Simulated assay, not measured.
Amino acid sequence: MTRLWTIVISVTVLIISLPINAEQWVEKRSFTMDSYTTHGGETIKDVKVGWEAYGTLNEAKDNVILITHFFSGNSHAAGKYSEDDKQAGYWDAIIGPGKAIDTNKYYVISVDSLVNAYPNLPSVITTGPASINPATGQPYGLDFPIVTIRDFVNVQKALLEDLGVRQLHAVVGASMGSLQAIEWAAAYPDWVERMVSVIGAGSLDAWTIMGLEHWARAIRLDPNWNGGDYYDSKAPLEGVTMAQAMITQGAMHPTYINQVAPQQETLPEKALESVTNELPAVEWLYGASRARAPLADANHILYLVRANQLFVAGHQETLKQGLKNISAKTLFLPSSNDLLLMPYLAEKTAGQLKEMGKDVQYEEIDGPWGHLNGLFSIQQKAKLLSEFLATE
């Protein structure tokens, strides 16, 4: 397998290793709740999520930074589980001893989301449609309640409270993680001193909601999806493959894709033989996505899409109402050439906070990656991030 193919496979779940200065080892842990009542009023029994921590919790338990992860990510934000790991956590470049999020100072925690997109990854612990419903002994499927970004936050809050933590030095998240970060600041202002939104938004507009819907429709149009009831039969892997391919392409910028994908030769022979044969660039994208599809769960992706589509910070009727309670210092770091969560979304949110007299900073990340600049070009904002976290 070529290096480029490996890159695309990794990007499909958005966990490409960034350069690290020294190894840091991390243990995956599990947090369990006997029951959880969703923001919509539904009860889920036996909720489990995975979590990781880096650094040391101080005696006052006030040095905690929560890292909230992106759509196709998980709690593995930094470090490695063992010497055999080929990849460190996705933000290892900025989380660790002496780094921007300095684990010599801060106790850094990250938590697997509910309905995590990749429940079949060995390192992911999550509760969602693929989990066993204690009432029936069968997978929930679409009987699983709709969950929101607030629900992700509330489960994280329950974990923190279980650890005796009652305040966060900061919440920092990229993409879907940025939605969680700002939801923390809006829903629990007394908890959050600082909030960092990387490649994010305070709410999703009609254009973005439509874009996410394509991911969901790809799955629902797969005959094997079977109305969400496929756990005793053939999984809708073609739908998942298409959804992942669209996620990957949307998260990357043409500048980068055109550098690494196979270039179109004049009249490819296979393409002339049949319209069902894939062109080289398409084969490059879909082949990588197809290889990762068994690690995902179709229903989980649908539930994640819906949680993102429903998002407005604070879960109020308007963004302005939702932002009103935020008291945290805020830092917005959108990607200048993001085609997925376009920078105007972060700019609008930051602008509304400024109009309210809130403490707001805004800078754009540059780079060839598009949306993924928030992961792979984040080091260019390391000094700014370090200084922001140190502000009184």
Score class of each variant (00 low, 15 high):
11 V>W: 08
15 I>R: 13
19 P>H: 04
25 W>Q: 06
26 V>I: 15
33 M>Y: 06
37 T>V: 14
38 T>L: 08
48 K>E: 14
49 V>I: 15
51 W>I: 03
59 E>Y: 05
67 I>F: 08
70 F>Y: 13
70 F>K: 00
70 F>G: 06
74 N>Y: 11
75 S>M: 03
96 G>I: 11
104 N>G: 13
104 N>A: 06
105 K>Y: 03
105 K>N: 03
107 Y>L: 03
108 V>R: 04
108 V>K: 03
111 V>E: 02
113 S>H: 07
113 S>W: 04
113 S>D: 04
123 S>H: 10
126 T>I: 06
136 T>Y: 04
137 G>T: 10
139 P>T: 03
140 Y>M: 03
144 F>W: 06
144 F>E: 07
148 T>Y: 09
148 T>W: 01
154 N>Y: 01
154 N>E: 12
155 V>C: 06
164 G>A: 10
165 V>L: 08
166 R>G: 07
166 R>P: 00
177 G>R: 02
181 A>W: 00
183 E>S: 11
183 E>M: 14
187 A>C: 03
189 P>E: 10
190 D>L: 03
195 M>D: 11
195 M>W: 00
202 G>N: 05
215 W>E: 04
222 D>L: 10
223 P>F: 13
225 W>G: 04
225 W>H: 15
229 D>H: 11
229 D>C: 02
230 Y>T: 09
231 Y>F: 12
236 P>S: 10
237 L>V: 03
240 V>R: 07
241 T>E: 02
242 M>S: 13
243 A>Y: 02
254 P>H: 08
255 T>V: 14
256 Y>H: 11
258 N>H: 12
259 Q>I: 00
260 V>L: 13
268 P>C: 03
269 E>V: 14
281 A>V: 07
282 V>D: 07
286 Y>G: 00
288 A>S: 15
301 I>Q: 10
305 V>Q: 08
314 G>K: 02
333 L>Y: 06
337 N>P: 00
339 L>E: 09
344 Y>I: 06
351 G>W: 04
355 E>H: 00
362 Y>R: 06
362 Y>H: 13
364 E>P: 00
365 I>E: 05
367 G>C: 02
368 P>N: 08
368 P>A: 13
370 G>I: 09
376 F>C: 01
380 Q>W: 08
382 A>K: 13
383 K>P: 00
386 S>A: 13
388 F>S: 09
